[in-house]
Nucleic acid binder design. Sequence first.
DNA 1: ATTCAGGCTTTTG
DNA 2: GCAAAAGCCTGAA
Length: 135
Amino acid sequence: MGVKKKSSNQNIKIPRLRLRTQSEGTRVTNQAERSADMQQRIWQTVAMIPTGKVATYGQIASLIGFPAHSRFVGTTLRQLPKHTKLPWFRVVNSSLRISLRGGGEKLQRHLLEADNITFIGERIAKAHKWEATAS
DNA sequence: ATTCAGGCTTTTG
DNA sequence: GCAAAAGCCTGAA
């Protein structure tokens, strides 16, 4: 594969989404529109985490092109409806630990274990970290 | 406009 | 490995 790698950039394929057109009759600010677009990208990226793998918030943020927005990834996932089809539970913090506090932690771990993911204490085995590769 | 808290990350000690 | 501090960015009050 004659792929030239520049700096520490990984061979990651970033999903390209069309910017949605302005909805009629509804004026949205540029900022709101940008956030909505970021959320779309977050959803799409999270959706492609394969079963048995986990990604970090920062990893998702980098994949969508905003490496400094790891917290926003968390905020976005938090707002998901309970019945969502998105595998939100496959996103963990940079220590490969569950960030959720309260009852959510138990649920997330349960869902991850259902995906055949192994824990070492509170930490997820490194082998489970998802490495997005160019297809 | 300002302040604060949030499913974060990285650096230091 | 862990705790504290500092960055970073957004949404809500």
